[in-house]
Design a binder for these strands. Structure first.
Lengths: 227, 227
DNA sequence: CGACGACTGTCGGTTCTGAGACAATCTCGG
DNA sequence: CCGAGATTGTCTCAGAACCGACAGTCGTCG
């Protein structure tokens, strides 16, 4: 048990502190590890549904969770979360109900902290609050960039940007094309068309339920110059 | 001078605390008012440019500032800020350069706080930090909703949503249609076409450089049911 | 190993948006 | 009061995306 606790604390420190100018302290990580609950969700089940009260904040330990919303008869995916990602804190801070459905894409382990506990920690640990704020800012920055991608139009550029963002460290994106389509807010057949172009240009390789990036630099050039 | 200071503090308390569950204390508002610098920007001039170092966070005192970015040959407007809005804190927290151009749409007054001062305040005033975090969360929530609007497609619904969001308390949106178009990431002529439909349906009235909302409830119905 | 469900690949017809160009109208300063 | 510049209103065409449908593949589970 003590072992589990310390490994959890180390993992939390790594995740929340990743790429950070303000790394989280071991003490704070330990305090968080003390308080988190751990829960497993089978693939396809919901962590929470749109409209529910936001009583907890969640961190993905393993697996993958997608945030989506029904809008005008069409399911749009706002984000696909991977281990280390935090979610649910925005509505909790605002005291609003959950704006999205959170559905486990595959079997997933999720850490949760309830609202009073988190508020207590954030109030008493200024550095943790600062770190949390930076985490929020990071997500906000990504969201802004994504909005620009979408607004700038051009499925090709949007897809390239999304692939680069979603790729794991081995340059692979593992999800059905239909899910990519719902992330981009476009038709599956449109994703298919563009994906084929990219494959013919030698930039990616398309497989079953996965896409391998062969030329990241080439994909990057699509973001600026093009159309 | 003391008068100016106290009015500024009251204004800051009202703005940052608006709609809040965690109103800002008078003390904290006073501390902020002590530290802010005030600067006037003529319409059309830049508060900062994309790529510059983010050394300050800004609050709009009066006027209007638009955040935009050139992307793929086209200027997309990420946000139109009005008095009380905060900007520039995200890149500052992340230690990244400014991702957008910030241009004053009309003559505007902007309050600014430099990075070390803000960090000092946030560290020493936990409630202020909490309030700032809630402000971030609020902006994040709006951004997410906007992303959903855009992804769900349908210029009509996007436009309705944008009009409802941008309207002042008298139900008016004051900006050229070209700016609306750049907010939505669509062609000006497309905005024109849809605007005409809405006008014929009696939902809005279109004027020179302004749009009046006649039937907010009617606009709201466009968001869900439709296409 | 066989069948079923999930996913990919492709095709046309239809609708919508992008784009460029131009006239009409409005605002504001001189 | 008048003119310049900004903004709106409209039109047309070419291109893109949507949408439904369907056949071919892939994985997996009994």
């Amino acid at each position: 048990m003590a072992l589990r606790h310390s490994r959890l604390a180390a993992w939390i420190a790594m995740c929340l502190g990743r790429g950070a100018r303000a790394p989280i302290s071991e003490l704070d990580a330990g305090l968080l590890a003390d308080e988190v609950g751990e829960q497993v969700f089978a693939g396809g089940t919901f962590v929470f549904r749109q409209g529910e009260t936001a009583a907890q904040v969640h961190i993905i330990r393993s697996g993958s969770v997608e945030l989506s919303q029904m809008s005008r008869g069409r399911r749009v995916t706002v984000q696909v979360l991977v281990p280390g990602d935090v979610f649910g804190d925005v509505p909790m801070l605002l005291g609003e109900p959950e704006p999205f459905d959170a559905r486990a894409a595959v079997d997933s382990t999720v850490l949760s902290i309830d609202q009073p506990t988190l508020f207590r920690l954030l109030s008493s640990r200024p550095l943790l609050a600062r770190r949390w704020m930076i985490s929020l800012a990071g997500r906000m920055s990504g969201l802004q960039q994504r909005l620009v991608d979408v607004l700038a139009g051009g499925i090709e550029a949007q897809l390239a940007s999304m692939l680069l963002r979603q790729a794991d460290d081995r340059g692979r994106v593992s999800m059905p094309q239909a899910q990519l389509a719902s992330l981009l807010g476009v038709q599956r057949t449109s994703v298919q068309r563009v994906l084929k172009q990219l494959a013919e240009a030698g930039l990616v390789e398309v497989g079953y339920r996965k896409i391998e990036l062969l030329d990241r630099a080439g994909l990057l050039t699509l973001l600026d110059e093009d159309a």
